[in-house]
Design a binder for these strands. Structure first.
Lengths: 119, 119
DNA sequence: CAATCATATGCCTATATGGGCATGCGTCAA
DNA sequence: TTGACGCATGCCCATATAGGCATATGATTG
């Protein structure tokens, strides 16, 4: 079985760095396809394809403006990612706590024996 | 150019649902490969392959225990995901605010004209 | 109407994935 | 020592990408 399609959900759509760049640009303001292509320094068809993926997972919406198409962000599909990863937030802050403990122990030892042979 | 490899970063490693399941299990406690396979209802080789991906992006660590190998979670590589998606958190809460505004306006209109022809 | 602009889509390639299956390798127990 | 166990890895397949290029479709302007 092949990999989960990029259009399966926001997790997969956002795994591609270029698509995150596009979202980051759209976070500031609504933009046309050509503008995005110029800002990213890539070809227009490529941007259109990425936007198609983002549209299929609901991360962007389109609006017609003459012969241009203006895309704007819809961040709601990102919420599941936020919710999932938030459950792990304590994981890396706990590590900080552990580091604090280690540092405290080191400092304590230094005060006790004043040893210098530490890197 | 093909898709970004799953081992490129946590974004891609975690895009696969089965790998998120594995992390969710490891979040509770350290586990052996066979236990994970049994809990997920999949074959052992498949779990080993997913664990390999997770190991390559630093999301799990291994420890030898006799003829078993115990895997445990390391959530630190998830932090970039958390940081990136957190920047969009206001995106969907803003939408709630907008919805509140709309609902308030509707409610206000109803009080003013008492109209019933609303869906 | 003709020419131009903005965008979407089609075709092409190389690539590596998730899963199935068989097997190799190290560890333990009898 | 021999067997069984636990795990990793190899090979196989179908699939769908990201990107390049050419072109079709639409809207605008002259």
């Amino acid at each position: 079985m092949p990999r989960v399609p990029t259009t399966a959900d926001a997790f997969n759509a956002v795994a591609e760095p270029r698509r995150r760049q596009i979202l980051d640009l759209l976070a500031a303001r609504e933009r046309a396809v050509g503008d995005l292509a110029a800002l990213l320094g890539v070809t227009q068809p490529l941007v259109s394809k990425h936007l198609r993926v983002l549209r299929e997972v609901g991360l962007v919406e389109v609006r017609d403006d003459g012969r241009r198409r203006l895309y704007r962000l819809d961040g709601r599909p990102l919420k599941p990612i936020h919710d999932w990863v938030k459950g792990y937030e304590q994981t890396w802050s706990e590590r900080f706590d552990q580091l604090d403990v280690v540092l405290a122990e080191l400092s304590e030892q230094e005060q006790q024996d004043g040893s210098q042979d530490r890197q």
